[in-house]
Amino acid sequence: MLISLLRKELRDLRAQTIAWSTGLGALLVLVLAVYPSISEVYADMIEQLPEQWLAFVGEGVNLNTLEGYLQAEVFSFLPIVLAIFAVLIGTATLVGEESKGTLDLLLAQPITRVRLATTKLAGLVIVLGIVTAVLLVVFWVMVPLMGLEASGAKATAAFVLLWPFSVGIAFLALLLSQLLPNRALAGTLTAAVIIAGYVLDSLAPSVSWLQPGRPVYVTAYFQGGNLLGAGIQWAYLGVLAGFVFTGAFAALWLFSRRDLGTRTHLQIGQLLRPRKTARR
């Protein structure tokens, strides 16, 4: 880890971190502010909703309670919006610098690619942790302000689970950015995977043939909503944790082996060639 570089990373991401924390925090304030007035309407409405629609809203969702409301109205969109931020910073961190040419400046210094990339990954993890922490603080400031009652540990855990999920998305974007020719393509593909995952994961409870595909719907790996409803699925959390480590490792491996500044196509042969055989 390179402290001076980590400081620079955090400084570079400062404006985005503040903007996204503020934006998501404001959105959370708004959604929580309307809860007292909307909860009664929901109670009447739910009785008239068809079963399939309730399934789409979320498994085991009880909109009469704050936990149910959070599950349906906060954790339905918050992971997706946070994931977009994760995609943006995940694709920018190495490939963004590479395409701008500033990566050369850093790598001309006496640091290995792995140390540089590890520091940048640490920067991503910290920034996403800051945004998650801001949301958690906003929630716990709003709860007493609005006179709400919430299950402390569960609600806290649900917010905290945004962190590994968004880190996983950032690392997925980073990994794809190492494999694909440019940042835009990597970002678009990751966003497409997230949106498709969101739609399919939401439909899965109502459409039986979509259910077996849940392990590939990336949004299924955010278990914060389930924590407040039907119950957490530990297997998904385990896979997410595994992906965070293997995704980071794979991205580091790719970054340490490939040519920099020549992003025309993926050079599989170069990646697979043992390091020493490059010498005549």
Partner: peptide, 13 residues
């Protein structure tokens, strides 16, 4: 760029 290890040679050192 090879000297700086930004890219890797196919052969040689």
């Amino acid at each position: 760029r090879i000297l700086l290890d930004f890219i890797r040679p196919a052969a040689g050192r």
